[in-house]
């Protein structure tokens, strides 16, 4: 009897001291359908934003820009500017290898293509 109670007591203590592991997700930025290249700004794992120019060989070129791990609720941000008249880049954000959000350029070539939000719960 005592043993059972001790087991129960220990189990209860263990139970309440456990905390759920926060689920970590993989996030990936990808840009395609750019004629020759684009300027891009994107947020990194630490929240800072980097800006760079990426060249592409053809619109079918798929540029995987950055991949990182994040927790649910973390903020992501990517902005692509491609001023070539007939270039319509498409921007994808993958979460755990599935497209979570996407956007594409319109006829307004000066308007950056922004995909931003928070990692889903």
């Amino acid at each position: 009897m005592k043993a059972i109670k001790i087991i129960i007591f220990l189990a209860a203590i263990t139970l309440i001291s456990c905390s759920k592991n926060e689920e970590v997700k993989t996030v990936k930025y990808m840009v395609t359908n750019s004629l020759s290249g684009f300027n891009v700004s994107y947020s990194k794992e630490d929240g800072s934003v980097v800006t760079e120019h990426i060249t592409t060989a053809s619109p079918s070129d798929k540029k995987n820009l950055y991949s990182f791990t994040a927790k649910s609720g973390d903020v992501f941000y990517i902005s692509v500017t491609d001023t070539a008249t007939y270039s319509f880049p498409q921007v994808y954000v993958f979460v755990d290898n599935k497209v979570f959000k996407q956007n594409a350029r319109t006829d307004n070539k000066m308007m950056p293509v922004v995909v931003s939000g928070t990692i889903p719960f």
Binding site: S41, S43, G47, S48, V49, V50, T51, V75, Y77, S79, P112, V114, S116
Partner: peptide, 9 residues
């Protein structure tokens, strides 16, 4: 949705 400022959102 706003452009980055000083390398930060």
């Amino acid at each position: 949705m706003q452009p980055p400022k000083d390398n930060n959102i």
